[in-house]
């Protein structure tokens, strides 16, 4: 059992809606090592964001409810903390950045004010110290004329620069973990490349662990060390990054990798697609949630939900079928 900085066990989160209870996360377990970058991939509704929001106490209750599980960080269970305790962890030890940098910044406050606030709150800095540190942070994320630009409002920044500000804000209190929820999805590719480059540089300088949530298997390939693939509120596959791309096991992972064209691939070959739609989970699945879309499905898949099992080299997969041979796993 390796020593995890963050150890999440059997997390379950539900949302009550007028149409019924949605089981968004159904028993997710994973660990994050110190300084490690973990990629979490899956489509909309697979529970990847809700998992992280649950850990940070950011799921609104009601309608959301964490019904089971634990998340231990520095000897404490984040899920059992009071709202003031978790608020202290959030921002100073674990920070999060979101997809849309416009809606996560307050449009009526200057960038400087928004950067200085957490510094004064969490690190008890004076106004002057906070201002100096804020300018330093902006410089660190590659914004020229930092001191001048502290006086600007979010609308005066471009999309890529706003995401840089979000990163600066997230790193302002030197957190041990940075959770990035699709931070480059709203950005153009050349700007995405700038942001990924920036995160890589900061990771090296500051040594924090990163959880990078995305639906793009390309971005994380060059960034993550380990990967989780999520589907229907479950982790269906987990492996070192090289192992996952070279030797994908779960039918969903295989389907995803084969359904995206690659830039280095000549045109012409037909894309293989995953038929059907991702599930909406009004009930906690008793069978494999991927079975309705799976071409390997056997009888057992419709009766029992496969557990996440180690198949060697730290590669874990939740599937009754060995997709390499097409036969049931023994």
């Amino acid at each position: 059992m390796p020593d995890y900085l963050l150890d999440v066990q059997k997390l379950e989160t539900t949302f009550k809606t007028p149409e019924g209870t949605i089981h968004a996360v159904n028993g997710v377990s994973f660990g994050l090592k110190e300084g490690e970058t973990l990629g979490v991939v899956g489509e909309s509704g697979c529970g990847k964001s809700v998992t992280m929001l649950s850990i940070l106490g950011l799921v609104p209750n009601p309608p959301g409810e964490i019904v089971a599980g634990s998340a231990s960080f520095a000897g404490q269970d984040l899920l059992q903390m009071s709202s003031s305790e978790i608020r202290h962890v959030r921002g100073s030890q674990i920070s999060m950045i979101f997809q849309d940098p416009m809606t996560s910044l307050n449009p009526v406050l200057t960038i400087g004010r928004q950067l200085e606030e957490p510094l004064m709150l969490h690190l008890n800095m004076t106004k002057k110290q906070a201002e100096d540190r804020a300018a330093e942070l902006l410089t660190m994320v590659g914004i020229p004329n930092a001191r001048e630009r502290l006086k600007d409002y979010p609308h005066q920044y471009s999309g890529g620069m706003r995401q840089r500000v979000m990163i600066a804000m997230a790193l302002s209190c030197s957190p041990q973990i940075l959770i990035a929820d699709e931070p480059t999805t709203a950005l153009d590719v050349t700007i995405q490349a700038q942001i990924v480059d920036l995160v890589k540089r900061l990771r090296q300088e500051l040594g924090m662990a990163i959880v990078w949530i995305t639906h793009d298997l390309g971005v994380v390939a060059g960034l993550a060390q380990r990967m989780l693939v999520m589907y229907g509120g479950y982790v269906v596959e987990e492996a070192e990054v090289g192992e996952l791309y070279a030797n994908p096991q779960h039918p969903y992972t295989l389907g995803l990798l084969n359904s995206i064209p690659r830039l280095d691939q000549k045109e012409g070959k037909k894309l293989s697609s995953i038929e059907g739609l991702p599930p909406v989970l009004y009930e906690k699945p008793t069978a494999c949630p991927f079975a309705p879309r799976c071409k390997w499905a056997i009888d057992r898949c419709w009766a029992e939900n496969p557990p996440l099992e180690d198949i060697g080299n730290g590669h874990r997969v939740a599937c009754w079928v060995d997709t390499k041979t097409g036969r049931a796993r023994s």
């Binding site: 590719v189 490349a193 090289g242 690659r262 830039l263």
Partner: peptide
């Protein structure tokens, strides 16, 4: 060159 390729190697 900015487009990522889903291949870590």
């Amino acid at each position: 060159s900015a487009v990522p390729i889903p291949d870590p190697v």
